[in-house]
Design a protein around this nucleic acid. Structure first.
Lengths: 338, 338
DNA sequence: TTGTATGCGTTATCAG
DNA sequence: CTGATAACGCATACAA
């Protein structure tokens, strides 16, 4: 196995451990050309690899940050993770990825474990619970950034979509094409799910602003699996919606399932828009207009904030970064522009 | 901050560090009910959290495994990762995720870093290079598992799709519906890309077995972005294919882009099948039949193997685990069954 | 320029 | 049952 340590290198090179340590930290000024070469050779010969764990213990820094996500399979998560990893890579940091599965208990356990593992910072896609846990971290000025959702009662840096803006964008888009009976399609309301709430509220505001009615019949809320059924029911009633706003990719699937099964024509009978870009938007017929989250920029920002917090030991106050949604307008509805 | 250490707890509880250590490791037999309670209180009061780094240094084990993937954004990767994370979670392990971006140099750097960080095992979606690096690990019996691809010249555990079987499945599927002019759609051939090669070879074998011709015109190879163009050219020639086998989800997108732009009717004019299940298979019109990889099982197996290798210090020989593809037959082609 | 000594927070060995 | 004490591998004052 490889239990070759600094001491071994030192012995072989006929120097002391400290000198080897200097060498490893590239403080070459403190040694002769001669010894430097001997050390290099010794390292090469033994195939020595420094033990970062030992270094970490001494330096109290691990060059790793922890990321806890509530749903690893979600595409948005993957993309943000990718950006985070990339930012960390640039700085020589690694990322420990943990999946809470939206279970607050697991989330808490992970926070504890990651702290015990001495990560230098934490990026969390929070369940929305565990207020106490995070509050303590903030008090201790431990580098922490929330993504996608927030934790009520915790004043920490957060990287979020401008959800209200996205809803406004959806309604505006429909309105510009003369659609007036717009319904929102969403999973059931959960108080601590910030984006869900903000999107719904944003939708309401955008509708009212334009004098569009938004009664219960225009809020179609159900678990994703039940959505097609709910939509079907809704479409058998009078005053069918002529536009559907799906608040995320999952609900979009429910909508598409429904229009396919029910044979509803898109966009003639009903126009569709949703938040989250989807890979098949282009090849679907008709091409789907979507409201994309700038996932890459969001991940990048989240990582940057953690690093900034790491160096600035004085907390410069929690900041909320709202990212503007971007309209991916595709051909679907164009032709009937008002 | 929290620099509360075992010593602090010991002092507060009026015991020695060793006793606290015993307590933490749940060796309660070695102490009186009395001290046990005192320690518990002290820990509570100080909000003590053990430093796993220190523990790791001593125990030479970190309860973390490293995962290096060549493309974090790929859905298959995400799903396998998810399964790996879950298996690790069960065992109290964490996962460091690294994205090589299919760059062998980055991959090598990551291997080194992860080893320096003393991970207990490595799961790699390899670029296919770095033979020397991995060979050394195998020699040292370091727990290592490859996923999706292999590294030529390295005898390590590998978790792979039965690619030839998948190709056979595709051809068989088409054949059973009377399709005979089958073309394979693939990214350009790269010698060390094992799955790509195996799928192509498997396709050839499956075709020949049935007496179907497979000349150059039935192998449509191009970068994903160029695929629609290539397909268009191919379809302007004589003897147009009546079935297209896309070897992964990316090439499928190229195919769908093409059929949409060219107005080719699916499945009447051309039937489609592909490897990798895609989320929109159901809602696409017509619903897409796909050949899914059992990603969850594959990730689980990869993790299990690492753990098995970790305990069995005698290498029981490298094993290759081939996972059977599963046909997700959807409605698209059914009606014209031969 | 190089070596010695000490400590980082645990665990483990061994007395008591 | 409990407490010194010595590692673990590296970094860092401080000496030399």
């Amino acid at each position: 196995m490889k239990k070759v340590t600094m001491a071994d290198v030192a012995k072989l090179a006929n120097v002391s451990k400290s000198t080897v340590s200097q060498y490893l930290n590239k403080r070459y000024e403190y040694m002769s050309e001669e010894t430097r070469k001997r050390i290099a050779e010794a390292i090469e010969e033994l195939g020595y690899q420094p033990n970062i764990i030992a270094r970490s213990l001494k330096q109290k820094t691990t060059a790793t940050i922890g990321v806890i996500v509530f749903n690893m399979l979600h595409m948005m998560t993957t993309q943000v993770l990718h950006a985070i990893e990339e930012e960390c890579q640039k700085r020589g940091f690694q990322v420990i990825v943990c999946n809470s599965g939206d279970d607050p208990d697991k989330e808490k356990t992970y926070v504890d474990t990651l702290l015990a593992k001495q990560v230098d910072g934490l990026i969390v896609f929070p369940t929305g619970k565990n207020e106490d846990v995070y509050r303590r971290l903030v008090e201790e000025r431990f580098p922490l950034v929330f993504v996608d959702r927030m934790v009520p009662g915790v004043e920490a840096d957060s990287v979020l979509l401008d959800n209200a803006g996205a809803a406004e964008m959806a309604v505006q888009y429909f309105a510009s094409y003369g659609r007036d009976r717009i319904a929102i399609v969403t999973p059931p309301h959960v108080s601590y799910n910030v984006p869900r709430m903000e999107r719904l509220e944003g939708f309401r505001a955008a509708m009212e602003k334009r004098g569009f009615e938004v009664g219960d019949q225009n809020v179609i809320a159900a678990e994703p699996a039940a959505l097609p059924g709910e939509l079907k029911k809704r479409f058998m009633e009078s005053e069918r919606p002529n536009a559907l706003f799906a608040i995320n990719d999952l609900t979009l699937m429910g909508v598409l399932r429904f229009v396919k099964d029910a044979g509803v024509r898109v966009p003639d009978e009903v126009a569709i828009i949703n938040i989250d870009d989807v890979p098949f938007a282009d090849i679907y017929t008709p091409a789907l207009t979507t409201i994309a989250q700038p996932t890459f920029a969001m991940g990048k920002k989240a990582a940057e904030r953690v690093f900034e917090q790491m160096k600035a030991k004085k907390a410069d106050g929690p900041r909320v970064f709202r990212f503007s949604p971007v309209l991916m307008e595709r051909t679907s509805i164009k032709r009937e522009k008002a």
